[in-house]
């Protein structure tokens, strides 16, 4: 092998390796994006039809469905794919998002259930969407920086800050779930972009 051929081999192998690993992350983005879209639409429809905000408890089912599906997705084809620094950072970002979102939701439910002040509890319960959409936007923006993709970075800002702005500007009621529908579509599209980085 000449020096040029050796360097070309190193570059090609490292690039293929990096793309294969990031490709797996793309599949997870699509899975969670689709789930987020479906669950937000389900909550929106049920909440609007019945007038009961309690349909939001359906959100707790999403991780219970999503994590086994994600596990199955990995077992099927990419079981032997190793972790690299990018995939580890992406997993850490979204695992942190999941933990923070579920914690905020649980604390809100607990607060609302024990607090006797109805006006205060409504305000706390209602701000949950704003908090989670902001966390989501931050997680997506950082993911965009990790994969060095401007559309994903911009989508993160638009979803997080735009979602927050829409929430505060418009009195949305059940329709606030459509902010998450938009976020779900953006997440799935991010997955498609990440998968296409392989090419």
């Amino acid at each position: 092998m000449t020096a040029r051929e050796s360097l070309a081999l190193i570059t090609e192998t490292m690039n293929n390796n990096r793309k294969d690993i990031i490709f797996r992350s793309g599949k997870h983005f699509i899975l969670w994006g689709v789930l987020l879209t479906l669950f937000s639409l389900a909550v929106f429809i049920l909440w609007r039809a019945t007038g009961h905000a309690q349909w939001n408890f359906l959100w707790f089912v999403m991780p219970a469905v999503g994590f086994p599906l994600a596990h199955l997705l990995d077992r099927k084809k990419d079981a032997d794919l190793p972790e690299n620094v990018f995939s580890r950072i992406l997993s850490s970002i979204w695992l942190s998002f999941c933990i923070f979102s579920v914690s905020v939701a649980v604390f809100t439910v607990l607060y609302v259930s024990v607090n006797p002040n109805p006006i205060g509890t409504i305000a706390v319960g209602a701000s949950l969407t704003a908090q989670i959409v902001l966390l989501f936007g931050m997680a997506l923006t950082i993911s965009g920086f990790v994969v060095k993709n401007w559309p994903v970075i911009v989508a993160g800002f638009v979803t997080g800050i735009g979602g927050l702005a829409i929430y505060y500007i418009v009195d949305l009621g059940a329709a606030q779930m459509l902010i998450f529908t938009f976020a779900g579509v953006v997440l799935a599209l991010t997955g498609v972009i990440i998968k296409n980085l392989r090419r």
Binding site: M1, S6, L9, I10, T13, M14, N16, N17, R18, D20, I21, D80, L81, P82, E83, N84, V85
Partner: peptide, 24 residues
Amino acid sequence: ELRLAVMSILAGVEDADFTYIKKQ
């Protein structure tokens, strides 16, 4: 060629499975 390819794969990951290296 092959040893260099193996090292190039391992340089970018924490560890890698034999079957993965074989595939790559």
